[in-house]
Design a protein around this nucleic acid. Structure first.
Lengths: 235, 235, 235, 235
DNA sequence: TATGAATGAGATTTCATTCAT
DNA sequence: AATGAATGAAATCTCATTCAT
């Protein structure tokens, strides 16, 4: 389901780490060192951005030598792309899994919406998105992969859910994918975009997220909810 | 109404060109040359991004000498901020003015939504937004000003419109501002975010925008429309 | 006596200012404007040094346009050399004139020594000397002219005085010029060199100068004084 | 006695080269490379002066890359200050040591005076002094350190010697420090100052130095010498 | 003749990348 | 295989000088 996309998985092609209990890894093939570098890179890039962070910053944060970084990654761009690929997958998997839970529609949408909104608008993730967006001009492939693995996959899952609900007679959406896209937009309506452009506004956000998601759910159900899904809507 | 905010208007403070019938402009005060530099800067920055575009790129695109650029702008950051301030105001004013037109609600929302979505998702504006977002970490003020003059002002106008419609009995939204924020999010649902991360997908976008805006209007009216505003909704 | 050395007088060759009461001067020939530029240059160079002072600093201090400066002086170096030539002459003339006064030897040497030391060690003159010395590598002629017009001329005058005193039987120096050189060195012994390398030490200098000159006079007269010139020396 | 002043010793703080038997030096810690850079800097600065010599000149003279220079020295000023500190200490130590020799007063003063005068008036040292003096306005600390380590320390040593001679009945100076300052001024009387302002006058200097120092010694002893120290003075 | 906006060569400094150890 | 000192291209910015007005 979240099997690594060979095109985007930088580890593809390296011998399986456990093939032999070798004491020594081939050049650039020690997964622990690779992870260590990525961790340092994450710290350095998140703090300063892609251009402003120097390879020296990365080296210092990772605690390895510069030469080693270049054994594992061909250049700064490849390191950054690998880093994004790495974080990306982790980030979205958890949120998507919320859609698999067995809950009433309204509750499921609410939990999913809040989780997604919290993640997307958290300081670190906002910074990461800013950096990725800012780098799209120079690394177009990376942006597209990010979108495909993240938002786009989310749209697919949610659309499938909506189709099931339509089949079950609890929703009357004429276009499940459009509705899914709209819902995902609505759960961070006003918050995500603002956070992208503005610094964090001291702590107000959790309440805002709850309110925004509730409003998104209500808007959706009021427009397209049927049967039990309309319960509690003062019509 | 859209009078230039003195704090954000980069041209504010330059002596009026007609104070004296001087043929010669003061240093850094020739509006034509200033515009020429900004035009070159726009080309250079839009093509490569803030960091990747060098002042030499700007110079070449603008067709002036490096020294001249530094007569008009103290440094690269100031040049970029001036450029953003310059484009920003022009960009949003037109769209907002569509809300003043005398049209039925559904038509007005559709026209406004399409215009906004077209602007926000056009190649140049997307590039500009990517660069601004990518630069927020280093120039926080600029991002905030952009948001305030653009999206935020839009929210205000649309919320006012919704309140008037509520008073007129054509809408039943419980929270006009939330609804405004949601609508603005919906008119480019799925498109804006995708464009931020991905390159242009040759030509498909106009149709997508029309479809998306129509869906946004329907969702809103289906949920909160009253009286004549519900006409045409197959309930 | 202090007639302008044609080689060093930058005004040489310009038509006499009063030849005709012309309303308009030839290009670069208005002595008032020339003086105005030199005055501004003095302020700018004394404050920042030759390299650190920009022609813009000079222009601002002088209150003329850049173009005008270049009408009067071919380049920055020529301006500086003219400035030095200008100040130089004024500076030394007053001190030398003290040697012409009709006073007993001891008093004359004391007055002359103190005046010389005060001038040479005053903040502005120290700054000027630092700048000239620092510029010798690039403008060797200027340093030599400065030395010839200043210290060297001083040596000549004082040597002549000493010879007269020898003839009068009040001094027994075997080498009048050497004695003159020594005396001039002694009147600012320890002070001038220190001031060249160090910043001003709040106010202590006047007392130090008096003490130093007194000691210089005593040393000279104790070694070479004869007759009445030895009065007051506790032998 | 001439132990390096930690504040002014640029090599202080570098890890001892033998802490580990490492073949490889830490960044900016290879003394040979450091010396190579300083050597190049000396050539470049002595030839052109501080401002006129570019880092490119230094790089060329040193035969290293520009990046390497900036590994060893934070910027141009720090490089220059390190260079001055480096030469300064070497320069004065030798001369001062001459005062420790066991010789009759007259011979000791003569040898010391000639050595000092030769050093201070040699072409390279004169150039160095010009540059330091020219840079005092921008780097006041450096000028003061130069004076303290050089002339000022010299005054102290010589004053101590004079005091010992007074105690031994061979000198009757009323103020040993003043006499020391005077003597140091006298040994290069007329030469040092002239050299500061003027270029080298082919080879005449050695004879001039001998003559000047002899005259200085005679002046001092004639004024203040007692007992055996007066031998040879035709009174 | 005086002006000052424009010029562009050149200055200092940074940093992604390499390669001898 | 890992290291990190060295590299040098390229970036930003300054300023002496020119020339159209």
């Amino acid at each position: 389901m979240t099997a690594p996309d060979p095109e985007t998985d930088p580890e593809a092609g390296t011998p399986p780490a456990d093939a032999a209990p070798a004491r020594r890894h081939a050049a650039g093939a020690d997964p622990a060192k690779r992870a260590q570098i990525l961790e340092g890179a994450a710290r350095a890039f998140l703090e300063k951005g892609f251009d402003a962070a120097s390879m020296e910053d990365v080296r210092r944060a990772a605690g390895v030598s510069k030469g080693t970084i270049y054994v594992y990654f061909a250049d700064k761009v490849e390191l950054f792309e690998a880093l994004v690929a790495d974080k990306r997958d982790r980030m979205f998997a958890d949120v998507i899994s919320l859609l698999e839970e067995d809950l009433p529609l309204r509750a499921k949408l609410t939990r999913f919406g809040e989780a997604l909104s919290r993640v997307l608008c958290s300081e670190d993730v906002i910074r990461a998105q800013r950096i990725v967006i800012g780098a799209v001009a120079r690394m177009p492939g990376m942006g597209e992969r990010f979108y495909r693995v993240g938002p786009s996959r989310m749209h697919d899952r949610l659309a499938a859910l909506f189709e099931a609900e339509v089949a079950a007679g609890r929703l009357a959406v004429p276009d499940a994918r459009m509705a899914a896209v709209q819902f995902i937009e609505l759960v961070s309506a006003g918050v995500w975009r603002r956070r992208l452009f503005c610094g964090p506004h001291a702590g107000v956000e959790e309440a805002e997220i709850v309110r925004t998601v509730a409003s998104a759910v209500e808007l959706l159900l009021r427009a397209w909810g049927r049967g039990e899904a309309r319960q509690g809507l003062d019509d």
